[in-house]
Design a protein around this nucleic acid. Structure first.
Lengths: 119, 119
DNA sequence: AGAATACGCAACCGACTGGTTGCATAATGC
DNA sequence: GCATTATGCAACCAGTCGGTTGCGTATTCT
């Protein structure tokens, strides 16, 4: 991305919570799964196969777009959506950092529970 | 975990959306960060340093508990919370799978946007 | 030009969320 | 025994969420 744009944005630090919140919905997870296949899909196409209204799907897509997980571009009368992986990379990194922090202090807590016979 | 329990549960397939939803809140992310340090914290301890009420913190902890991210045990009059990494591992794996699917079809989409001059 | 397609905007709705306050109860400390 | 500490439960509230319907508009097709 930053290789393409000459106006290289300084990769603004995004908060993780909104990204996780955007992923905290089955419908949006399904949209992400479909868009991650690499195709461009219009709103109507994404609505087909769903039991929801076009407007419902549109709202979900806007949520994903605000979280940066999806990009929208317009061709003619249709809005095409494309997957954007960066926020998911960052989210994954965050989960990794939390897991690593846990791993480092795991030994300290291991057996602690049984030792103290906690319920 | 499953090593301890003789009634080895078949590691029920958990949906990802609830885990992400539980992480989609700054307060809860802060709680996860603190608990991932490996210490056991009571509700009062977790409330100290926060501007929120004890009940607010309690509600957030219950959300994390239902998502499996946190475990609660009782000692005397206090409720001690411990971090549980499994759901986060699974969430990380899910993000990885989505990213990999994207990577595999990246070449197919690369240049597609510029080629078609989409706005 | 006229019909069909794809979409945006706005209002509306019930349900859920994040947060509070108030009160009751169990466990500890003195 | 009594005060303190730690918590649970329930009610309440404003705001957000997921979803719908209705309508207007731009684009494409024939």
């Amino acid at each position: 991305m930053s290789r393409r744009t000459p106006s290289a944005r300084p990769a603004r630090r995004r908060a993780h919570a909104p990204v996780f919140a955007a992923l905290g919905d089955r419908t949006r997870l399904a949209l992400v799964a479909k868009l991650s296949e690499g195709e461009l899909y219009s709103i109507s196409q994404l609505t087909q196969g769903s039991r929801l209204t076009r407007q419902a799907i549109t709202k979900h897509l806007r949520v994903l777009e605000h979280a940066g997980i999806v990009r929208c571009m317009h061709r003619g009368r249709e809005s095409l959506f494309a997957f954007n992986p960066e926020p998911l990379y960052e989210a994954k990194s965050y989960l990794e950092s939390v897991s690593e922090q846990w791993d480092q202090s795991l030994a300290r807590l291991r057996g602690f529970v049984e030792e103290r016979r906690l319920t």
